[in-house]
Design a protein around this nucleic acid. Structure first.
Lengths: 344, 344
DNA sequence: ACGCTGGGCTAAATCGATATAGCATTTGTT
DNA sequence: AACAAATGCTATATCGATTTAGCCCAGCGT
């Protein structure tokens, strides 16, 4: 079947009556440099256009070592935050002729290692990685391969690498301060069982804000839940926690899915969000915007994050820099009804 | 740098003192068939494991024509429905050793064509496509390349192809009937300006239900909005429409994003969802579950859809069938508070 | 007439794997 | 003993592009 085989450089060479080498030179814009005459050059271009020639990326990749493919490892592509980011990055990468191979870790280190492995022998040119716990060794090894790696959402403080994140500390600090300013007195936090920097920063920002506002702080105000639980289990844990803290009047959920589970839990407890219990979450979501009452949150600048990640990646692909590019963007607090205690 | 180059079949051959051919045979499980002795075979296996050999997929792909990569074209990877599906398909594909290259069309035919083009010269083995309007020619051409193509979410009635969809007609019919049974008398629909089968089916199911329940139906009850509008414009259009239909007491939104915009619009009109205006949407969403009141919807079996798609694809990759596999799954109506008019 | 320079192009090697054809050597058959 | 068949392995071409080295010819200077 003719239709199966694509047009190759040989086909063009044959039609133009020149060698494949010449065709390659011309189509790679090296006509001048390689002293190919205008005539021949134009002729080849014309034929290539007419035949709709597209280079076989496998062959090119095999020879040059460049596949024009980026490996993207996220925590969960079904999560709105990561999916939205994936969309932005896909768009940006496309502008540079790159495609994206993706995979979700589910915050599982073994899965993450597997993904890195697969992406490696698929010869991706660069990696965008949302690292899991204990992935630092692999990230360091990756650096040695001279393929750019940009970490996102979180990073390893002791590993010198590129990353693009938001100021999680400040975001948590600001939204907690906001809750305090609204008059809430006993504020708790629900977070994920994780020592990773982004969660640590959110927790630290939270506690710092409590301290600065002279509000009580102790371990009983912090609830950590393992990532891998099912929805029902999350809700059970959250409800148990909220009812266990006497005098609690506000709660900060440290991720969007915790926020969603949290709202569900609070409602099933029959508590009134706002007056009875102030609520805020990290990350924005359609649900937070449209919930009644609407939910106060710390929103990450998704478009900006995505663009920055791809920009760093492209720069590193073109001109690798000696020092790591570490970008910290500012999240913003979106104040909504859930943090309004009403007339007290 | 040694670290840059991976271990190749030659390295193993050298260490084992055999030819690359032999190594290839052994590592591809053809030792028996090619009469390689147990001794040599084991030796090679051992060395391969020790060196952590991973075949270069580019080289293999170039030679065999198989890249173990699936091209996934969705409408919008940031949309919860497609993202969730992408997750399921990624998982399933992974079980068979396949990776996924994705792209979003934004329901734009030119973008879709571009994506197909790129995926083609990247030599993907198979395609999962959410087609846009007028993409039928390209889909037909693709079939001629003998690479499996499975359409999802929608298909072309006049094109004989594999597809996995839900029964959009029945879903819309059922949820509209439910609204009618709840006592709503003047039910409208908000849909997307699109002649594509999935939207047509939803509209047809809607009108058929009205007819069967002896409810009024005319053009003024149908609002079509172009996909590419911005959020604000969607809201404006929806509000204008809802207020223009005199006596309207329920509305069905034909996609999840329309449902979300719809809720926003209705709320900004100050109407009470349920008693004042019954609401239902196609697709489920966290937002619909947790909204007050919660939103009745037609839920698609996402996991089942995703598994079916990949299953069909794998079967076609292994044993291409003469007749197209066309799978229609049943969506289910999830009844929630938004379709309860209360005591009237 | 000879060498030198530069213009215009190509042959051949290469990337890493797979597939085909086939070469020794041993074993079996009558 | 002579030939066929089976055994165990390898040389080489190939996929489609890129890249290196270099060939041939024309024009120029002396």
């Amino acid at each position: 079947m003719l239709s199966m085989k694509g047009i190759s450089i040989k086909d063009i060479a044959k039609q133009a009556g020149v060698s494949p080498t010449t065709v390659s030179f011309v189509l790679n814009g090296k006509a001048k440099e390689k002293r190919i005459s205008e005539q021949v050059s134009k002729k080849i271009q014309k034929i290539a256009t007419r035949l709709k020639y597209k280079p076989n990326q496998l062959a090119r990749g095999l020879r040059t070592g460049k596949t024009k493919t980026i490996g993207l490892i996220v925590e969960d592509i079904a999560n709105n935050f990561f999916a939205s980011l994936a969309k932005v990055m896909e768009d940006e990468a496309d502008k540079h002729g790159y495609k994206v191979l993706y995979g979700s870790t589910e915050d599982n280190t073994e899965k993450a290692k597997g993904l890195l492995e697969v992406l490696k022998y698929r010869q991706v040119d660069a990696y965008i990685v949302t690292p899991t716990k204990n992935l630092d060794k692999e990230i360091e090894q990756l650096k040695a391969t001279s393929k750019p790696v940009v970490l996102m959402d979180r990073y390893f403080p002791h590993v010198s690498s590129h990353y693009v994140v938001v100021d999680n500390y400040q975001g948590a600090y600001n939204v907690t301060s906001h809750l305090a300013n609204q008059g809430y007195k006993k504020i708790a936090i629900v977070t994920i069982t994780s020592d990773q920097i982004q969660m640590k920063d959110r927790l630290d920002g939270f506690t710092a804000a409590l301290k600065d506002h002279h509000l009580p702080y102790n371990k009983s105000l912090v609830k950590k839940i393992p990532f891998e639980l099912e929805r029902e289990a999350f809700n059970t844990e959250i409800k148990k926690f909220l009812t266990s803290v006497k005098g609690i009047d506000a709660v900060f959920f440290a991720t969007n899915y915790l926020g969603i589970y949290g709202i569900e839990s609070i409602r099933s407890l029959g508590w009134e969000i706002g007056p009875q219990i102030g609520v805020a979450s990290f990350d924005d979501h359609d649900l937070f915007r449209l919930h009644s009452p609407s939910i106060t949150c710390v929103a990450q600048p998704i478009t900006e994050i995505g663009k920055n990640i791809v920009e760093v990646l492209m720069q590193e692909l073109n001109h690798p820099s000696a020092t790591p590019r570490q970008i910290v963007l500012e999240p913003s607090v979106i104040v909504r009804a859930s943090s309004d205690p009403g007339k007290k």
